[in-house]
Design a protein around this nucleic acid. Sequence first.
DNA 1: AATTATCATAAGGTCAACCTTATTATCTTT
DNA 2: AAAGATAATAAGGTTGACCTTATGATAATT
Lengths: 219, 219
Amino acid sequence: MNRSPLSESVEMYLKALVELSDREMVAIGRLADRLGVTAVSANEMVKRLGEQGLVKHTPYKGVALTKKGRDAACNILRRQRLWECFLYDHLKIEWTQLYEYACSLEHATAPEVTEALAAFLGNPQTCPRGNPIPAADGSFAPLNGIPLGELDTGRAATILAVNATATEVIKHLYDRNLLPGHKVTVLEAAPLQGPLTLRVDGKDVALGLALAEYIIVSR
Amino acid sequence: MNRSPLSESVEMYLKALVELSDREMVAIGRLADRLGVTAVSANEMVKRLGEQGLVKHTPYKGVALTKKGRDAACNILRRQRLWECFLYDHLKIEWTQLYEYACSLEHATAPEVTEALAAFLGNPQTCPRGNPIPAADGSFAPLNGIPLGELDTGRAATILAVNATATEVIKHLYDRNLLPGHKVTVLEAAPLQGPLTLRVDGKDVALGLALAEYIIVSR
DNA sequence: AATTATCATAAGGTCAACCTTATTATCTTT
DNA sequence: AAAGATAATAAGGTTGACCTTATGATAATT
Ligand SMILES: [Mn+2]
Ligand SMILES: [Mn+2]
Ligand SMILES: [Mn+2]
Ligand SMILES: [Mn+2]
């Protein structure tokens, strides 16, 4: 069962891995980028995670969570998203700050507290940023959506979730009404990886492709 | 203003110092004991705290918090005790677990979250373990009580607060009804630092002097 | 005044997570 | 097949927060 507590760093790596697992294998470079760490550091950590059986690294192919690692990661997501609910619904914290504050609390939350919090909140299924909350057993229906960058030009869709993590980026998206529940249409995709032009709430918005990746819309 | 975030270790040292400040100067040995650390380690940390202006160390006399250090410490106490209120009143966490869980959360709580939590709770003045909650500005009316060990034999008093930190110790006291609001009488103090014999809720209880130090009673 | 206990300091280690700078290996693309 | 991009590994460092063992310095007690 191995009830050893994972360090904050380890937890953040696991969370990043589950968030980046659109495809099974995650390139270490992508992982390093997301965590704001050098590729060498990410390699070192992945080695440690492998020794703990949380991850399987296939050189030159990528990193994948093991069952154990995925379970741990889902539990971290659960904690994070439950805290987001509490912070938003009860403490009236600004939407743009939710990720940052919940990302601290998630590492300081014992299992008993997690479950009591879930009960207090009425076992919510979704967090204010649009993501599903994994159940206590780790089970978890992923969002059935696609990144905004993959939406066909001319198509309208509804934003399901916003997955940016840097508060600065979150604020940028918030200021442009790129929020769960809002409708977006891709008016134009500029060539050469250029920005998208979107229609959101009656306004035109230019958005770089990197940012568009964070926005999950209905298909 | 120096808004650098303090590490968890630093915060725990500051909290220990404010909790041990019955007399102005805290002996490094006492500090080390309370934190479960060697005296050498405590010395090293005190040196670092001194460099950050949080503490003044007078060799062979003891450590004292500076204004800056005391303000920081009171803010940590505020966070901890607010979390205890939330965990107890809203999440229905067992009384004996409050310290442990709040002691994790306290380090992961941004100022904005602290104040929103205080508002959510209705700005409570006292935590479930009986201690006053410092105000947002750090001001703080200390309990007007004495440790149970200093209560005269034969005298009855009311428990104001229980300040033990080890969950094991807290459970021991809880099982004997040594809780805020309960009445205690010291029936006998055995010689040679022997245990106290107490009368609590109609039962006789033997309690070592070390444990009695954690219980603050009315004078 | 001498003994003993506590405290301070010196010296050297460990461990997790980071870092830089090279070098080498593999994959992908031309 | 060669080039270029990405990934892995090697080597050496840093920092905070711990540790042990040993040696001086001061305070308290007899
Ligand atoms: Mn986090
Ligand atoms: Mn703590
Ligand atoms: Mn050293
Ligand atoms: Mn090395």
